[in-house]
């Protein structure tokens, strides 16, 4: 059993409500130092409220939390000195340039002129902002603003970083850049508390994932453990010929029918072996599907499994054996 002081973040029974609306209904978790902990959930699940509480922006109605060994309420200023926060809405000063934003942070962290200059030059370089450093931050693109935001957070060299939906609204390239940044932070020993609504993001980055729904943690574990809870992986066959569809739907076992779309779903983990088995069976039965696509479990499936509340399904890509990439496009 790990001792309390080895945890970067511990929370017990955090509660918060606004009027009649309960946003957090008693959540508990522990985050070991140097790991990535992801809070996964749909919009309105309470993710941002949790980050706001843990980053001292708002106070919880009930419950305790310790961050870097400091009590959240009694030693708020010590907590603030240990953390860095990049919220969902860019926390940059749009009226001044990127470089001036960085200088502002260096001054507020009480760095000397030379130390400040060195850190700023290095971070602007590292986040590919050196060319835009002299331009007002309000003229930056979404991805650039987010990079500046993180760079500003890193000026004080925080050991614990809160990232609230750091990739929401970013294009795929910027998202991968952000993932790379987060991986580098962790390899430097930083503890990252990450919220996201994307399972693949949590899957890529997090050591532990907690699923938040309606203010409660409905599951917690590694990505693998969570996926095992979710039976959402399947192969989908779509037909244009109603006769072929009817034959496939009646002949195949364990299928789910979708009469409107003339499509059947076969539970599958998406491995090469299972795909080959399905293809072999289709060949031998003389059935030809117009489209075949592989679906890996996603947030929709997790939510369906854990809460029984399906999220409206998104459009899915066409025949694509590399299921993960399929998800990427679907978003």
């Amino acid at each position: 059993m790990t001792k309390d002081h080895e945890f970067a973040i511990t929370a017990t029974g955090l509660r918060k409500s606004y009027g009649d609306r309960t946003v957090l209904d008693g959540i508990d978790f522990r985050v070991p130092g140097g790991t990535v902990f992801s809070l996964l959930g749909p919009n309105g699940a309470g993710k941002t409220t949790a980050v706001n509480i843990l980053s001292t922006l708002i106070s919880a109605d009930d419950g305790q939390a310790r961050i870097a060994g400091h009590d959240l309420t009694a030693e708020a200023q010590a907590v603030r000195a240990a953390i860095g926060v990049t919220g969902q809405f860019s926390a940059v000063d749009g009226l001044i340039t990127g470089e001036e934003n960085m200088l502002l942070m260096a001054d507020l962290h009480h760095l000397s002129r030379t130390a400040g200059r060195r850190v700023i030059t290095e971070l602007l370089e590292r986040f590919d902002l050196a060319d835009a450093a002299k331009k007002p931050a309000s003229t930056y693109s979404g991805g650039m603003k987010r990079r500046l935001d993180i760079a500003m957070t890193l000026v004080g060299d925080p050991r614990i970083i809160f990232l609230d939906e750091p990739t929401t609204g970013l294009d795929p390239r910027s998202r991968h850049t952000m993932w790379q940044i987060i991986r580098e932070l962790v390899s430097g020993g930083v503890t990252v508390f990450l919220t996201t609504q994307y399972l693949d993001e949590a899957d890529q980055l997090a050591d532990r994932i907690a699923v938040l729904n309606g203010g409660r943690l409905v599951a917690e574990g590694s990505a693998e453990e969570l996926k095992r809870l979710v039976p959402g992986g399947h192969v989908r066959l779509r037909f244009s010929d109603p006769v072929a569809y009817e034959r496939a739907a009646t002949a195949l076992r364990e299928t789910t029918r979708d009469d409107a779309a003339l499509a059947v779903q076969i539970p599958s983990d998406g491995t090469q072996r299972e795909l080959r088995a399905i293809l072999d069976w289709l060949d031998s039965a003389g059935i030809e599907a117009d489209e075949l696509s592989v679906h890996t479990p996603d947030l929709d499936d997790v939510f369906f499994a854990l809460t029984g509340n399906p999220v409206p399904t998104q459009s899915t890509g066409s025949a694509n054996p590399a299921g993960a990439a399929d998800k990427e496009n679907a978003r």
Partner: peptide, 13 residues
């Protein structure tokens, strides 16, 4: 109303 205000509030200043 600016985002930077949230940052100031979470810093040890």
């Amino acid at each position: 109303t600016e985002g930077i205000m949230a940052r100031f509030r979470t810093m040890a200043i």
